[in-house]
Amino acid sequence: MIDITLTYIRDSLNQHLKNNFTLTENKVVLSNLVENDGSSSREVEDKVVLFLIQLDEETSLKNSRGRGGISGGAFAERNAPLFLNLHVFCCTNFRGPNYIEGLNYLSAIVRYFQQNRILFPAASLGFSNKIEKLSFELCKLNYDQMSNIWSSIGAKLLPSVLYKVGLVVMDDSPISKITPAISGTNENVTN
């Protein structure tokens, strides 16, 4: 689910940038900014880089029950769905004379999420119907938090923005119990 969600966001942003800047190539890539050995990745040069930095559970929905009706009036029980928030980082990796181009793309992305605070991926042609709705919330980071993130990534500071993307539903748990429907009546019941 996480990969499907991030791929959908990447594709949506690429389409938005193509429409606004008459681009023919994709400018948004879903990738690490830095390779595991600490070297800079070639595939992210002059690109907008999108990557996951954290995920957490949406605790306000934690106590929902995993029970639903099935055929014949019976009930199926399973583990409750897991509602996730993804913290997605988006940075522009443009250097030298292309720096301003990267800032233009970052501005367009912020405008896109401002205009589309909620997206409905299931309505998209050919997209998995397991994700009904995604919401986007701009996260504010102070200088210490920003410094910690860039230190953890192992890269130099780049123009960037962090969004909290909620609610990605993980609901693939198997049925653990089936409770049959009550059938028939007992006519010998006394008052």
Rank of each mutant, 00 (worst) to 15 (best):
R67N: 06
I53D: 12
N14W: 14
L33E: 00
I53P: 07
R42H: 14
N36Q: 14
K27L: 13
Q54F: 13
K27H: 10
I9E: 02
T22N: 12
D37T: 11
D11M: 02
R65T: 06
S40N: 11
V49D: 05
I70K: 10
I53Y: 09
L61G: 02
L50D: 00
K47Y: 05
T7W: 00
I9H: 05
N20T: 11
V34L: 04
I70V: 13
S41E: 09
L33G: 00
S64L: 12
T59S: 07
G68A: 14
D46R: 02
N26S: 08
D37W: 14
G69M: 07
V49H: 05
V29N: 04
G69Y: 01
S60P: 07
S12P: 00
Q54Y: 14
Q54K: 15
V29G: 06
N63C: 07
L23E: 15
T5D: 04
G38D: 02
E43M: 11
D46F: 06
S41F: 08
R67S: 10
L17Y: 01
L30R: 10
F51E: 11
V44E: 01
K47D: 00
G38P: 06
E43V: 03
I9Q: 02
D11E: 13
N19W: 05
V28E: 02
K27R: 14
G38I: 08
D11S: 00
N63A: 11
E43T: 08
G66L: 02
S41H: 04
L13A: 09
V49N: 00
T24H: 11
L13F: 07
E58M: 09
T22C: 13
N20P: 03
Q15C: 01
L17S: 02
V29Y: 04
Q15F: 06
G38C: 08
T59Y: 03
Y8D: 02
R65K: 09
R65G: 07
N14H: 13
G38V: 08
N20E: 15
T59E: 06
E43D: 10
K27I: 11
N63F: 03
L55H: 14
E25R: 13
I9M: 14
G68E: 10
E35W: 09
N63R: 09
T59A: 05
R65E: 07
L6F: 15
V44Q: 03
E45V: 13
G69T: 08
L17F: 07
S41N: 10
V44T: 01
G66I: 00
I9A: 04
R10I: 02
E35R: 12
V44A: 07
I9T: 08
L30W: 12
V34H: 01
N26L: 11
E57S: 01
L33P: 00
T24I: 09
T5W: 03
S40P: 01
T5G: 04
V34E: 03
F21H: 15
L6A: 15
L52F: 06
L30E: 07
Q54S: 08
T59V: 13
S64D: 15
G66Y: 00
L6G: 09
D11K: 05
L52D: 01
T59P: 06
L55C: 11
Q54M: 10
N19K: 09
G68D: 02
T7L: 08
